[in-house]
Design a protein around this nucleic acid. Sequence first.
DNA 1: GTCTATAAACGGATAGAC
DNA 2: GTCTATCCGTTTATAGAC
Lengths: 186, 186
Amino acid sequence: METRTVREQLLDYAQNLIMLRGYNGFSYRDLAELVGVKTSSIHYYFPSKEDLVLEAINVYSSESLAEMYAIDSSQSADLRLDRYARMFGKVLGDGDQICLCGMLAADIASLPEHIKQAVQSFFRSNETWLGKLLAEGKKQGTLVVNGEPEAAGRVLYAAYQGTVLSSRLFGTKGRLEEVARAYKVR
Amino acid sequence: METRTVREQLLDYAQNLIMLRGYNGFSYRDLAELVGVKTSSIHYYFPSKEDLVLEAINVYSSESLAEMYAIDSSQSADLRLDRYARMFGKVLGDGDQICLCGMLAADIASLPEHIKQAVQSFFRSNETWLGKLLAEGKKQGTLVVNGEPEAAGRVLYAAYQGTVLSSRLFGTKGRLEEVARAYKVR
DNA sequence: GTCTATAAACGGATAGAC
DNA sequence: GTCTATCCGTTTATAGAC
């Protein structure tokens, strides 16, 4: 028996579909069939497709960032980086999904300004968090950071986004571990 | 006066459209209006949209890889990395495009197996080329490489793919330079 | 080669009954 | 809230005239 509300199911399946096929790659019909309602019912909850996507970003973003901020800051930086990597590993799902905001960043030319800003906000949060982590790891001597940690945080986040993409493309989960390994002191 | 054949124009505009909006984000109608023909004429050259995309990959791939392989191998590794970064900078175009194969990697769930293989092939060529470059830079002492160069090549290529994405998202070209800087000896 | 015409399915969205 | 019915534009693709 399904306990979630229709609205919750819609958001959940919408998230999966976007992470699989992108904004232009799924329709209200796809979603309706998955949830078992008619497309007109979706419009009751989300008048337009953009409304749906924006709400999907909000849910995804708040959950992901909460998990990221919850990473125990008393651990050493290299262990925290491992936990971050594992978090990123979960977005792969059955190996056919990429990060929701990474996907929407690819589709950004099809989306309105306010959605772009939500995606930017998610990127920035990850970048600055990683930047601070790298700064600490450098000070501790647990991570290898060449140059300014802030810029290195942006590069590292880009590496993670690119790596989920190639992990799915090649069907290999192991690539995500290579990223953290490239920053660890050996 | 337009000197290119219709076929050449179709491929050129198709490349731009894919790099801007992705596989599901453009139509034969968009393309027809840009070139100034009817959609049925496009089917004469490319029976299906997949035929068009595959040919666009072939053109893009052979041109990009040729340019990459032409990077003077007598230079030091850090200078070659700069040239590679500048190459990647060109894909941004007016700041609204990302790598064709990076975009199609995001759209991969909408595409057939033989197109997936073409995208994989492009990724692999870049990854191995960068891996060898990093190996040489490490030996020369001009680049900072932590760990195995092969894995580092995959991470670096992912970083470039992720960085064109975020460069477009934030409208800042400078991020591409940060990547190479993170690998240079200072 | 390029066109007109057309097919047949799909797209997001709305009105109004229940 | 969810449905049926419907609008109307779009999409890829084909047939056949020129």
